[in-house]
């Protein structure tokens, strides 16, 4: 079959900004998600100025108070303000989500490139990744936290480690496909050194899928952080996180369900927004996978 196409008209590439605007206009759900996330980020950043009090301050009058004009989200069983704690909880959740996403993508990219292109220790690395992936993520995180003690750092690392193998596999599969491309072989033939080949020809192919993957990792990390906190193996109890809030409200759920449901639904909305954003980006950046998913 012949491949020659008629010369395609010279299409001006729209600027990146324009492309992004187009994307949002065509996908209102994605637009909504972006707005929700923006609001959450701003709320987390400016938490102290948004009608909040000290998140640890106990007000007797607020004890298990239902949502009202004074306490918008009500109070918990100790009398702490839930509006305040929800905003401060957003800090933890968004922080864990973004740190884990950035770190696991970076580390996974590095390992995946080494394993996939240089084939250095490829077999060993992949067996270790297989092993790590065989341990259910939450359990691995629980194990890591319980031997190293609960702190923001240990929790973040514990959530990150189970995410890395998935990134490594993704990167490796892309690298293995791209390194067979004739244009990469042409670059080898003209004597381009390996670091430049990775940088110019391989890395750009990894970026779009990794951006998409980063959103999914972030969503999954936020979920895991909440689960760990809820189970008592996460963020230390003195830090207000959504998972901690739910764990504390668990005992009084039949009497004061909002203590659990408010942080729970906030968490669900935040994760939903990240996932919808990820799906939208995938449709745009990674049409090959988008068609399949």
């Amino acid at each position: 079959m012949s491949l020659t196409a008629s010369p395609s008209p010279v299409a001006d590439r729209p600027s990146r900004g324009r492309a992004l605007m187009d994307l949002f206009r065509h996908n209102p759900l994605m637009m909504l998600s972006a707005v929700i996330l923006l609001v959450l980020v701003l709320a987390a950043l400016f938490a102290p100025y948004l009608g909040t009090v000290d998140p640890r301050k106990i007000g007797v009058l607020r004890r298990m108070a239902p949502p009202s004009a004074q306490a918008w989200f009500g109070g918990d069983q100790l009398g702490r303000d839930l509006w305040t704690r929800a905003l401060y909880g957003a800090r933890v959740s968004l922080m864990v989500g973004s740190v884990v996403a950035v770190m696991s993508i970076s580390i996974g990219l590095l390992i995946g490139m080494v394993s996939g292109y240089l084939r250095a220790f490829d077999a060993v690395i992949m067996r270790i990744m297989d092993g790590l992936m065989s341990i259910p993520g939450i359990l691995l995180a629980i194990g890591l936290v319980s031997v190293s003690g609960a702190s923001f750092l240990t929790v973040t690392v514990a959530i990150m480690i189970p995410e890395i193998p998935r990134v490594v596999r993704l990167v490796r599969s892309i690298v293995l496909t791209v390194r067979e491309e004739p244009y990469v072989e042409a670059a080898i033939a003209v004597g381009t050194p390996v670091p430049l080949i990775l940088w110019r020809h391989i890395l750009p192919n990894c970026v779009p899928p990794l951006i998409v993957q980063a959103t999914y990792v972030a969503a999954s990390a936020m979920l895991t952080e909440a689960l760990l906190s809820f189970l008592g193996a996460g963020t230390p109890p003195e830090i207000p996180s959504w998972g901690n809030m739910m764990a504390e409200g668990r005992i009084v759920f039949p009497i004061a369900p909002w203590i659990v449901l408010i942080p729970g639904c906030t968490l669900a909305v935040a994760i939903l927004a990240v996932n919808v954003l990820g799906d939208g980006l995938r449709d745009r950046l990674d049409p090959k996978i988008a068609k399949r998913m």
Binding site: A226, M246, L261, G264, C265, A268
Partner: peptide, 22 residues
């Protein structure tokens, strides 16, 4: 499906308990 991915297990559990149990 996206909703199912995003709803934390425990949030869904408590919503069900609240609605069908309580």
């Amino acid at each position: 499906s996206v909703l199912g991915f995003s709803f934390p297990v425990f949030v869904l559990g408590y919503l069900l308990i609240y609605q069908f149990g309580l």
